[in-house]
């Protein structure tokens, strides 16, 4: 558009150097105003992003040495509950014998754990239906029909691999990015 105007103006006012130079200065001054305004907008927009202290907590390290077989803990990661569960051999066997193809969200236990550490199930404690916190991590809580987790809000049942088996939830409990830094130290995030 600007170039169209330029042509029109040049032909109208005769192609004098002075005219073009004058226009150039006005355009340059206006462009600088625009660039300056945009540069000022950057921090105004950027300030709403996660601040340094929040980002610093984006990954946490959890010592799992004290979780005995069959127990689970709840911890907080990115302001959300995380369940870390030390599966018993029976629970592992339970989870492994299910035919993956028959599941609503087909995943095997191995897909959801680290090789050699299949007994450590790390999942978000957020039901994939509407975001309630399922029961089953703390001792004495209902674990649902499949021995894993049970969401009391709308009755979703998760098995010992945290996979959805019954109820309205569409997906398995989310496994966050995690890694073993040592035999007992898990880094989440």
């Amino acid at each position: 558009m600007a170039s169209d105007n330029q042509v029109v103006m040049d032909t109208e006012s005769g192609v004098e150097d002075g005219v073009r130079r004058r226009d150039f200065i006005h355009i340059a001054a206006l462009s600088f105003t625009g660039v300056g305004a945009a540069a000022v907008a950057l921090p105004l927009v950027g300030q709403m992003g996660a601040s340094a202290d929040v980002l610093a907590q984006a990954s946490i390290e959890v010592d799992v040495a004290s979780i005995e077989t069959g127990q689970a803990i709840k911890t907080m990661w990115r302001k959300q509950p995380v369940f870390i569960r030390n599966l018993t051999p029976a629970e592992i066997a339970d989870a492994s014998k299910v035919a993956v193809g028959t599941l609503r969200d087909p995943q095997s236990l191995a897909d959801r754990t680290k090789p050699g550490k299949e007994n450590w199930l790390v999942t978000l404690g957020v039901c994939t239906h509407l975001g309630c916190v399922p029961l089953g991590a703390a001792s004495g809580e209902v674990k649902g029909e499949f021995g894993g987790y049970f969401c009391p809000c709308h009755g979703s049942h998760y098995d010992t691999a945290g996979r959805i088996r019954k109820g309205p939830a569409p997906l398995n409990l989310v496994v966050p990015e995690f890694a073993f830094l040592s035999d007992t130290l898990v880094k989440i995030g």
Binding site: R22, I25, A28, A29, F32, V35, G36, A39
Partner: peptide, 16 residues
């Protein structure tokens, strides 16, 4: 530096 150039340009524009 940006503002000095900006002010110089607006000054030229003003003079014109």
């Amino acid at each position: 530096i940006f503002l000095i150039i900006f002010t110089g340009l607006t000054f030229l524009s003003y003079r014109q």
